[in-house]
Design a protein around this nucleic acid. Structure first.
Lengths: 420, 420
DNA sequence: GTTTGTTTGGTCGTTAGACGAACTAACTCT
DNA sequence: AGAGTTAGTTCGTCTAACGACCAAACAAAC
């Protein structure tokens, strides 16, 4: 068996929210420990059930070190010993799995018309999945905060009843979210400069876990990265197909949020110069030529109300299935425009995978081929630079799931709960 | 004085070219040491001259640890003690500076018509800057490799004569370079699948230093990051203004190359649907509506020969200075199109800075304002999300300088020369 | 000049934690 | 039963950061 190379790992140092301009943090022994604990945790996540010996062989860590790390993780109730292996030569191995029972990660997705809450255990398995209607578009920001906090509280009490400790809460918002978790602009919600993370922490008064806020597309990308069928992909772009279009950008294995946290605003890239007007005041934005709001405006007489997005999409699907030439033509045009947007992404970022999410999933049978064809035709690198176009399998709760995944990510990168 | 927080630094672990899919590398003590050596080295680079006590106070490392690390770096001839401080209360401090004398980092920029070689010392100060004409467009790849190797050899012997050890050589190429340093496609050079890094290493037969190859825009971005006046910027995009247009993308402090290394191909994003044809076979690419090759085709009668790019640009500048309305109009159109490209970048990546490089520098007086205006008008985030547009001050050797910076980067991130 | 205070930088002992080797445990196969 | 194999633990070693202390070298106050 090949011993893995050990050339230059990146230590986890306590640089969570380090000020920009702060150079690289110095490291000490606790960083080594944190790094290795995270390594073992992630290995078990990806290879459960597995033995201490497996971990040592695959990671290159010493057997003794692995034993110590595993004991630590068991103390923290992150791992659990399960049965022994049988029918094998040699001493049977005690297998290890993630302990699903003591913790929960909570994600809430805020939308114009509804609010989705999910909780998952350490393994990422769903514990709870709620969907409530929610007057996000019409309520004030304060009311919205109260509504979100109410749901969060109910989720937390439910988890507490199951004897689970909540490790964190992340809220997904469709809009520009800065790096502090403050919503700078969310047109569909009618929000501007709402310090959602701060307000929520205040309303939940000392919840005992971190409260984060991020963009829905970013969190959708995290959901795909963790729960999607893309083994070990390090460069991925997720596209939300809602009323608007947003992108979540993962490069080298991590979300890239840009200088202020506003990356991924692909929806307002100009695709058709002089094209139809967009609510943002410009013309020909990707959102108006490949977004679903604009599509429905053209297929549904009398315009689209955000609250009724899903049934209207279903109607489009039915008409497409029935072969309605008007709808098929609109979908083909949409696919062409979307393909041009994907082509831009492929040229500029060269991701391994672009995932179509949201309602694009339902429309995939009629748009996927054309989108891919346009993307390939527009990338300089042969074969799109290896970029694959796939359809999300996560359904509509992707951002909420990604919000929960965000919590698990912080655990995986070293923020472990204290031992009992 | 505030003690810096020490919460979660990222250790340098020996993961230079770790296989994709390989999880995070486990860490051991040597990683801690490497991380801290790099921290001290970088601190001195940014704060020279400074004392051991300064380093300890600012980094949070223990004084004893700093002494040990500094001794190690002095052994490796990376640091040097200089004089003592005077006229201060207390014991005078022995000041430390980067030792400029024993090492050199070499960068070579390959272009269609010329070849630029630079060498810098540890401080980044230029030791040598050559520019040779070079029949890159007409020669075969093999001849080109021989030519590059020849120049490299001369630089190395020159450095050796000055008693300097060459720490590495990086070659900048205008084209698609994969992650192994193989040139997949360089239209202007007429190259396809040339394993430049491998071939050079072979021709230089065991040069004793690593030979890397990267895209010219990527390396331009590194040059801006290290030598440009952008203090501590973590998200930056560099645009090359040559015959074509390329982008080098830095996010969270590091180059992001994409899954295959082909990121940054902004030149072949479709800006004007149905626009003028591009040599790549498509229409309306940024390159043909904002590239300098296309500009010169319209201003210089009889088309442009790549070998004469600079004088022709100078002629455009003269005509612009003279107020030639045709040229001014063309430049304004170019600026509008370029601004749309920059707007795409700002929306998608939200960099703190976009740097215009190459020959855009000479044209800046006539294009900068319009480019910025278009960029701001097209970004969803207010104020362009904080994105500043600046002109490079590095001149034409930016990619070569960045190639050398690439070598220094690898030193800064822990790849230190062995002690004497 | 003497004293006092301040700052630098080094020494020494402590400690965390990874590593290697040896060892024990528990099984299968012959 | 014995040989072979694999798992996991124990123990001693070693690296390197850390805290405390100390001597050196200066300025300022007296």
């Amino acid at each position: 068996m090949m011993r893995p190379t050990r050339n230059g790992a990146q230590l986890i140092t306590n640089t969570q929210g380090s000020a920009p301009g702060t150079g690289p943090q110095p490291a000490d022994f606790t960083d080594v420990r944190a790094t290795n604990l995270a390594v073992v945790l992630r290995f078990v996540r990806e290879n459960a059930p597995c033995s201490r010996a497996d971990i040592a062989a695959s990671t290159g860590l010493n057997k003794a070190t692995v034993s110590s790390l595993v004991a630590d993780l068991i103390d923290r109730r992150l791992l659990r010993e399960t049965g022994l292996t049988e029918n094998r030569v040699g001493r049977p191995a005690t297998m290890l799995v993630l302990d699903g029972s003591p913790y929960a990660a909570v994600g809430i997705e805020v939308n114009v018309d509804y609010l989705t809450a999910v909780a998952v255990d350490l393994k990422g398995e769903a514990l709870l999945s709620w969907r409530r209607s929610f007057p996000g578009g019409s309520a004030s920001a304060g009311q919205a905060v109260a509504g979100i906090a109410g749901v969060a509280r109910r989720v937390v009490t439910r988890m507490t009843k199951e004897a689970r400790q909540v490790l964190g809460l992340t809220v997904a918002v469709p809009g520009l979210v800065d790096l502090t978790g403050s919503v700078r602009l969310a047109p569909n919600m009618g929000w501007r400069d709402v310090d959602l993370a701060g307000d929520l922490a205040k309303v939940l008064r000392d919840p005992g876990f971190p409260v984060l806020v991020d963009n829905d597309a970013n969190l959708g990308a995290l959901a795909e990265l963790r729960f999607g069928p893309h083994g070990g992909v390090r460069d991925l772009v997720y596209l939300t197909g809602e009323i608007g279009v947003g992108a979540g950008i993962v490069l080298d294995g991590r979300l890239r949020r840009g200088g202020a946290g506003f990356s991924g605003e692909i929806g307002h890239i100009e695709i058709v110069p002089g094209g139809p007007p967009c609510h943002c005041g410009r013309r020909g934005c990707l959102e108006v030529v490949a977004g679903l709001g604009a599509l429905l405006d053209r297929t549904v007489p009398g315009g689209v109300s955000p609250a009724e997005l899903e049934p209207e999409i279903d109607e489009v699907v039915q008409r497409a299935e029935a072969g309605d030439p008007v709808v098929l033509d609109l979908l083909d045009t949409l696919a062409g425009n979307l393909g041009r947007g994907v082509g831009i992404v492929a040229n500029l970022l060269n991701p391994e995978v672009v995932v179509l999410g949201g309602y694009y999933v339902k429309l995939a049978p009629w748009i996927l081929a054309r989108v891919e064809q346009e993307m390939l035709a527009r990338t300089l690198a042969p074969g799109g630079g290896g970029c694959r176009l796939v359809v999300s399998g996560l359904g509509y709760g992707a951002a909420a799931l990604g919000a929960a995944a965000r919590v698990l990510d912080s655990v995986d990168s070293g923020r472990l709960p204290a031992p009992a």
